[in-house]
């Protein structure tokens, strides 16, 4: 059983997944950020692999990716940084990124290296399910990695079921058909999340996109197992002088563990 699956056995409510960009704000801050997230109560860490043309990301995350690339972040550097991370970090880690850099690295080598350092799962938004089923899925499974598909309010019920079937770990419910960081009316989202909940899917559901504070986190958690915060956390990193302290304050607010 994977670390992600174990997590959801222990915890079915208010699971918090926080996104951070590898190599941001500094090339060597990857582990500092991950450790700070673990110590501040994040249940899952979604580690973004920076790409020059990140279609599904909004401007804040794209800017962090550009900065990370300037900082010298590459997949080779990332796996070097992650070599011993399991000695200090026990939180499940998902790598999120785009297909092109992975293809250049070598898809199988990527999966092998990810599994070897202790990564638990993958989110690759531009890997379509046809190619997943015919070509890449078996390699991902061979290395014991979870693979998480995205669904949106526009995804038909039949397709949600199919993507749920293909996913393991959890299902990523995009709260609106939008790139990350866009604010949307959360009541419309609730209807969609209720619909997902009533489908009794195989996987736990985490809600992403538009989650930025205690209020939106709680709304998302009402109809799902938890939520994913990305843009708001990167924005905090942009502004903070101290990663550990900034992360602690940020997560305290989201988790409601402070007055």
């Amino acid at each position: 059983m994977s670390r992600i699956q174990e997590l959801f056995i222990k915890k079915q409510h208010e699971v918090l997944n926080v996104y951070c960009t590898a190599g941001y704000p500094e090339c060597n801050s990857t582990l500092t950020v991950m450790k700070a997230l673990q110590d501040s109560g994040a249940n899952l860490i979604e580690l973004g692999m920076p790409y020059s043309d990140p279609l599904a990301d909004g401007p804040v995350i794209q800017a962090s990716s550009s900065k990370a690339l300037e900082n010298g972040m590459t997949l080779v550097v990332l796996f070097e940084q992650l070599k011993d991370f399991r000695k200090t970090i026990q939180t499940p880690v998902i790598l999120m990124g785009y297909m092109n850099p992975i293809l250049q690295y070598g898809f199988e080598k990527f999966c092998a290296d990810a599994a070897a350092v202790g990564v638990d799962g993958l989110i690759l938004p531009d890997l379509p399910e046809f190619e997943f089923e015919t070509e890449y899925g078996p390699i991902i499974k061979q290395y014991g990695l979870d693979f998480i598909f995205l669904v949106t309010p526009e995804t038909t019920e039949e397709r949600v079921r199919k993507l749920d079937e293909l996913s393991s770990g959890f299902l990523y419910a995009v709260s609106s058909s939008a790139t990350t960081g866009k604010e949307k009316d959360f009541t419309a989202v609730e209807v969609y999340l209720q619909r997902l909940q009533s489908m009794h899917l195989k996987n736990p559901v985490l809600v992403g996109f538009g989650i930025k504070d205690r209020e939106t986190f709680q709304s998302a958690c009402k109809y799902a197992n938890g939520a994913i915060i990305g843009t708001a956390y990167i924005q905090m990193l942009n502004e903070t002088k101290n990663i550990e302290e900034g992360t602690r304050h940020f997560l305290q607010k989201v988790l409601g563990t402070t007055a």
Partner: peptide
């Protein structure tokens, strides 16, 4: 070729 698109564009 192919269609390497995020789910948000699928429909």
């Amino acid at each position: 070729g192919g269609a390497y698109i995020p789910e948000m564009l699928h429909r």
